[in-house]
Every structure is written in structure tokens, then in C-alpha cells.
Design a binder for these strands. Structure first.
Lengths: 339, 339
DNA sequence: CTCATTTGGAAAGACGTTTTTGCACTTCCT
DNA sequence: AGGAAGTGCAAAAACGTCTTTCCAAATGAG
């Protein structure tokens, strides 16, 4: 079996194939002029020997670092802790996996410049997750010559490359669904964060209400975006003189809190209240009681797409600068149609 | 201001200092024989020029990748989604920051071998978060010659290097605190996961009960470790013929659910029920109503320590193989002393 | 004063790739 | 038949750093 202590290099492959290292390199990278037969033969020998090009050496000669940074915008700190959201974890893991698959390594960076020339780590490009309006980081990185892709658009400056859902369409789809299920007074529970997500959703909601000639009812929980915050906010909504008969919550944890609040005060879902929210890849919505209707945003797909887009940009392919990841409304018990 | 298109290299520094590149390298890395005066002068010029050694070139010559992997053990899939826990996010971010500070890049890897020779990305070492009992990944990596540090010990094989809290002592501290606050019947709400954390806590709890001559009461929520799961589990505990008058929840989300369950059924905290749980760096415990007493585990410190330990190992310093990160009990309203 | 030893620093090789250049040999055209 | 164009591959120069040698000058000892 003998796993050699030292990895097999291009020289060993060349020797085994009876050609020069040049030829091996050309064969493996589809460069140079080589008859197909030679390419095949060299490749066969290479993976028979288990050859994997040393990424460091390759990076050195092609003049890149092989690293891409992923930074989550600060959003002004504490009340909103990025680590509290499964969304980010899934996005990050998918982006990392995609990057590895394309020969890059993704490194998670704190928002306060661990990237950028001075002091930090050198990267070829960066993914910025949910930048706030006019996020200074985006500009700083761009000025340092680092290619940037954002997930979610940056409000105020749309020149960047981004990947995002079509939240306008998603929101409409949810509202239409709620209406078809019998809702007459739909409240939006969302956050005041200045990111394109909340911006789009609230705009779509207000436009939808205007077109449907109903009064919008927007509730922003205090205390962040936790279950407790949702519990409290739902409590207030349900105590209104004219309480909503449906709620669309823009963060899933708000919805879970809402569910508990309803349960606690004897409000039945879906009989008295329809409830819909957004979802990651989690199984939580179907395990909730009742199972929750969700607008699936596919954060993993967003992460994957962001990494791919960034790498395409770095490799000088000329990809479409914007990627829209499809959403999907999954109807479950929490919006079961009323008689 | 002229940011040069091309970074300043060791050659420019050498030229500016009027010495050879050798001398610059020696001065910057504390190698070779150089009078202190020369070292100082070269260093001064180097950072005046903003010189940063090209990590790729350095890695190539010293024969490392400069990458360390962080993988979170699968824990047997879905019910337990790692991305649901702020704990992991904080640990990871801190580990990444620490790694960057020491010249390494940390890459997040999926549990199914994106590391290891065949197929994946080459790393110098890996951090494995909360390995399950006899986690196959640990062995596989070790066999591939990759240095491994775990956070939390691996049950079944204690030969590895790890960083962990002293959960035995932490649990005792919490139980003692609850007892001093007047608790007479303390329930433990925990998970059946086979990781050292839950193992230690449950053992400490049972031993503590034995010594205090009280019957242990352990409740493992179904439906994972969410607020809803905690809500349901707490409901069951409180419906018992002899309900507990205090609960220690090993995951914070269980505690938040417990709080809502108590509120929903008119059980007052802390008057009727004392409640304590563990905490990350989040502000949630103090924002809860009532504010939650917590055992702070300092995941960020765990991550930082794990990265530092791994890097010390890689750099052939001979660090202590185990690091214990201190915990701290923070008493808040949820365990306010009974009259 | 001479020889051995230490000290300061330079030159050059190495790390493992990619890429450019160029050589020899065919094939094709006229 | 003679030159032009095309083909297959090798040699060698990078990439930017660290590290090993090695030489010259300075210092010390006898």
C-alpha cells in the first residue's frame, strides 16, 4: 500500500509517462498543442498515480492567492447577531464547498477589515453578505482592487455584482397565497434593517396592499429577531382592536415565536390566524405545530451561486453580473384554506 | 498617494535598505546572524514601505499550505443542524480571526471529506468541533498525516489534542447556585447527543444528585433543540405530578422555549421556577424577561484557543495538548433567591 | 605578526508549478 | 525539389520567498 511520505509531483508523472513536465502540465490544463492521445495517456497516468497539483505552487506562478473572503456586514452590531441565523451558516457552508470545488479556499472574515492590504489577509476576491446601505466595506475592497460579489444588493449603489432572490415576486406570491387562503387583513412582521431584503419585501407588501386597497400593517419587533421578539410582537398584533387574520414574518424565528404566542393565548392557527414565513434548508417548518407555510429562499443556493459568480469573475470568464436564485412557496398547515 | 499596482516585494525592501534579500529575510524572521542594529533598520524600512511577505511564496518554500480546516461533526444529521446554533458561528469566527492573525487561513469544510488527499482541499491541520463518539473523521485525518485538534473531547479515544470547558465543574457550579437560590428539585433538560459536552453535564448532574440525595430528573426534548422543543419539554416537566422547581437547560434555545412555556401557563420565573442555561456571547440572556442566569461557555475563546493550539502544533512548538477554557456563572433574575 | 576564529552579509539554489520560447521533424504547396 | 507552414514536445525562465552555503572582513590568541 505504501502511502509515500511525500506527495507525487508533476515530475514523477512526467517520468512515468515518459514525457516532460511541460507536456504533463499542458495535458492536464488543456493548454499547448498536444495530440489527444498524449493528453489521455498522461491524464490516465496522473490519476493512476494520484497526482494532485500543488495548489500553492500553482497560485504562486499564476499570481493569485487562491483565497476568497466571506464577510458578513456588521449591520450596526449587537441587536442583530449574524451568528444567530441558520441562514448565514447555510450560505457560508455552501459557498465554502463550492469554492473548494473550484480550487479556491473560502475564509470567513470579521467585518472590521481582516481583509484588505494593511494588516489582514490577502484575498483574490470577497463575498459580502447582506451589505447595509452604502456599506463602506464594499467601496474599500473595490478600491483595493479586490473583486466583490454581494448577496443581496447594496442599496444606494447598484453597480456591483450580486446574487439575490427576487424578493418582490416572492413577497407577492406569499401575499397572494394568503389571500387565496382567505386572509383579509395581512400584517407584515419585519425588521427595520437597511438591507435590500427588508427593503424589497416592505416595498412589495405596501404596493400589494395599495393594489388590493387594504391598509398596510407593518410591525417591527423590538428586541431583535428572536423567537421572544416574535412572541412579543405577535402578542401586540393580536391585541389590536382590529387584529390581523394573517401574518407574514420575514424571519423564521419571528414566526416560531408568533406560533407560541398564538398558542399561549388560544388563537388557533390556521383557523383564526394564517401564518407564513421564510425558510432555509431546515426541517423546522414541517416539524412545527402546525407545520409552517414558508417562502423558501435557498440560502445554500445563494452561497453556491455567489462563490461561483465570484470565481468566474476572477477567472476572467465574463459571467452575467447578477444571479437571481428562485424561491418557492411551500404551503403547509399554517395557511390551510378557510371554509 | 499612488498605491502601486504591484505589491512591494522583498527585493524592493532590500534595495531601499541597501542590503541583500537574504538579510531582509533574516531580519524579518529572526533568523541568521545579524547585529540588532541592522535588524531594526531593515524592519523599519520594511513597514515604512508597507511590505507584507507574499504568503503563497512563503508557503511554497516552507512546504505547507497555510490552510487549516474547520469541520463540524455531522452528529447523525438533520434533527441537529449545526447552523442553528450561535455557538458554532461564534466559535468559527473567532477561530478564523485567530488563524488569520497567525498567518493561516481557516476554511470551513463540510463533514463529508472535502478535506483529506483524495478529491478535497489540502490543509495543514484541522479543527473538529464536537466530535461524536469515535468520530471516523478524526481517525481518517490523523491517518492522512493531518494534525487534528478537537473542541470538546472525543469520547472513546482521548489521545487527541483538545480544548474544552470544564463542564463537570461548570455544571456543579450551576447546580450549587440553583440550590443556594432555594431550589429543591432541579431538572436537567439536555440532549441525548453522544458528545463529550452532554456526556459530562449529565454525569456531573447525576453525581451531584447522588451526593445531595435527590432523585435526578432528566428530560431530553424530542424535536431537536429549538425553542419549540424546549417549550414542549418544559410543558411536560411542569405537568408532572411533582414538577421541578428549577431547570438547567444545556442549550440556550431550550431555555428560551421554557421561558415562553412558563409564561404561557402562568408559572412565574423565578418565583415558581428557577431557570438557568448556558450562553454564548449573545446579549439575549439579559434581554429575556426575566433576564436569564447563564453558564457562559465562551465559544469565541474556545475557537481562538483551538486555532492557536493547532497552529502551535503545526509550528512545532510543543504546547500543552489540552486547553481548558474557563466558564463563568452569571446570576440574573431568573434565579433570584427565594425568601 | 601570523594564524585561527568569529562575525556580517551576499550569492545561489530550492520549493512545484505554469508559461514562453524554440527546436526538430512532418506535411503541404508550388 | 525546395521552401513554408504546421505539429509535437522539451528546455528554461519565471513566480517570491526561505535557507544553505560560503566568502570576506574583523577580531582574537599565541
Amino acid at each position: 500500500m505504501g502511502t509515500n511520505r511525500t506527495r507525487v509531483g508533476i515530475k514523477e508523472v512526467a517520468a512515468a509517462a515518459g514525457v516532460s513536465v511541460t507536456t504533463v502540465s499542458h495535458a492536464l490544463n488543456n493548454k499547448g498543442r498536444l495530440p489527444e492521445a498524449t493528453r489521455q495517456r498522461v491524464r490516465a497516468i496522473a490519476d493512476q498515480l494520484g497526482y494532485k497539483a500543488n495548489a500553492t505552487a500553482r497560485n504562486l506562478v499564476v499570481g493569485r492567492t487562491g483565497l476568497i473572503g466571506l464577510v458578513v456586514s456588521q449591520h450596526g452590531g449587537p441587536p442583530f447577531a449574524v451568528t444567530d441565523f441558520a441562514y448565514f451558516g447555510q450560505l457560508m457552508l455552501a459557498a465554502s464547498t463550492a469554492a473548494i470545488g473550484e480550487g479556491y479556499a473560502l475564509v470567513l472574515a470579521p467585518a472590521d477589515g481582516a481583509l484588505a492590504p494593511q494588516g489582514g489577509i490577502a484575498v483574490d476576491g470577497a463575498i459580502i453578505v447582506d451589505p447595509v446601505r452604502d456599506d463602506p466595506l464594499v467601496g474599500a475592497l473595490a478600491r483595493a482592487g479586490i473583486t466583490v460579489v454581494t448577496t443581496g444588493r447594496m442599496l444606494g449603489d447598484d453597480r456591483s455584482c450580486w446574487v439575490d432572490n427576487d424578493h418582490i415576486a416572492g413577497t407577492r406570491a406569499v401575499l397572494d397565497h394568503l389571500q387565496r387562503s382567505g386572509a383579509e387583513r395581512i400584517a407584515l412582521m419585519t425588521s427595520p434593517l437597511e438591507i435590500s431584503y427588508t427593503f424589497d419585501v416592505e416595498r412589495a407588501y405596501r404596493e400589494w396592499c395599495a393594489r388590493a386597497r387594504v391598509e398596510p400593517l407593518v410591525k417591527a419587533p423590538e428586541l431583535g429577531l428572536s423567537e421572544r421578539a416574535g412572541y412579543a410582537a405577535a402578542g401586540e398584533l393580536l391585541s389590536l382592536p382590529e387584529p390581523p387574520d394573517a401574518i407574514f414574518a420575514t424571519y423564521d424565528r419571528l414566526a416560531y415565536g408568533t406560533l407560541l404566542a398564538a398558542e399561549a393565548r388560544g388563537v388557533r392557527v390556521p383557523e383564526d390566524l394564517l401564518l407564513a414565513t421564510t425558510a432555509t434548508e431546515s426541517q423546522a417548518p414541517e416539524q412545527a405545530r402546525p407545520a409552517l407555510t414558508t417562502l423558501n429562499l435557498h440560502p445554500a443556493e445563494i452561497g453556491r451561486a455567489a462563490a461561483s459568480l465570484l470565481i468566474a469573475l476572477l477567472d476572467d470568464e465574463e459571467p452575467a453580473r447578477h444571479v437571481v436564485v428562485p424561491h418557492r412557496v411551500v404551503a403547509r398547515s399554517s395557511t390551510r384554506r378557510r371554509r
